[in-house]
Design a protein around this nucleic acid. Structure first.
Ligand code: FES
Ligand code: FES
Lengths: 146, 146
DNA sequence: TACTATCTCTATCATATTAGTAGAGTATAC
DNA sequence: GTATACTCTACTAATATGATAGAGATAGTA
């Protein structure tokens, strides 16, 4: 698995929208500025995320983007897989893969399967609500430090 | 981390050479045929592996390739990293990376670190000697089955 | 209504990576 | 001295990545 800039931008954007969950829409401009993402690139990413059911949009003045679900309902893995594709380290492991006939013989397959399970265990067990809590914990730690 | 064809071919080639460790050199032709790898592509991979100190070569008649170290001395992770690059899921984690200033703030970093550790734990704890043993165990299982 | 902020959509582009292919050259055993 | 086998550099086609450009649609409001 490889996290691309697009995936990184998508995660940061979803997190930003998660932080503003329940508030009024956030504009592309604000999202781009806060996460330092090229605006026109983010436009495309947000359209993708909308098609993926992660976000909703409001047009016109007072428009912008909103998270389509509660932050607790979105896992990091959902976003990564939707934007950057499968997390499997080799094509052999992906669903509907026709090659890899001599599966029984490939002594490397168990390695790829282990890696695959390890990655899934991580990215599918953390939601954006968890991330927000971590952010808040960090903030408090900083205040306490002062 | 993403295993490319080149990495896959390199692993299968090293395994083949590991199986023939101690024997006479194995030709590119035989390696290519057995693992179904385009011969000219494998030539390049073997030159890379030679520069990486994984294999040795003998020219002329009765020439071919030999494993440069004992199979127990070569980890799967060594080959993957040498051929396909770092196993880290994001550039931020790689050594000498200058970006990612607000490290303290990036709530995703612990996720990438976890994944990185998980992958390393897997690929750095299996040698080609281990793989050969697994191959032999499979062979015996098949014989027993018959 | 006109204006403006905002999202929507399609196309285009530069660069890098991937997965090879081609062909001439070098060394060695016999 | 010739066949066999590795060596080296260059080239190529296809795809992915990380954007940029510009015209269009929609909604609030003066
Ligand atoms: S050939 Fe499919 S996992 Fe090895
Ligand atoms: S910005 Fe470097 S890990 Fe998130």
């Amino acid at each position: 698995m490889r996290i691309t800039y697009k995936g990184d931008y998508a995660l940061k954007t979803i997190l930003d929208l998660a932080v503003h969950y329940g508030d009024s829409p956030v504009t592309i401009h604000d999202l781009a500025r806060r996460a330092d993402i090229p605006t026109k690139f983010l436009e495309q990413i947000l359209l993708d995320l909308k098609r993926g059911g992660f976000v909703e949009s409001r047009r016109g003045k007072v428009g912008g983007y909103l998270l389509a679900k509660h932050p607790a309902e979105i896992k990091v893995g959902n976003v990564i897989r939707f934007i950057d594709g499968p997390t499997e380290p080799v094509a052999c492991l992906e669903k509907d893969y026709s090659g890899c006939q001599d599966m029984f013989r490939c002594v490397f397959k168990p390695i790829w399967q282990k890696i695959n399970r390890a990655i899934s265990n991580i990215v599918d067990n953390i939601t954006f609500e968890d991330l927000i809590k971590q952010l808040q914990a960090k903030k408090e730690a900083i205040i306490y430090q002062i």
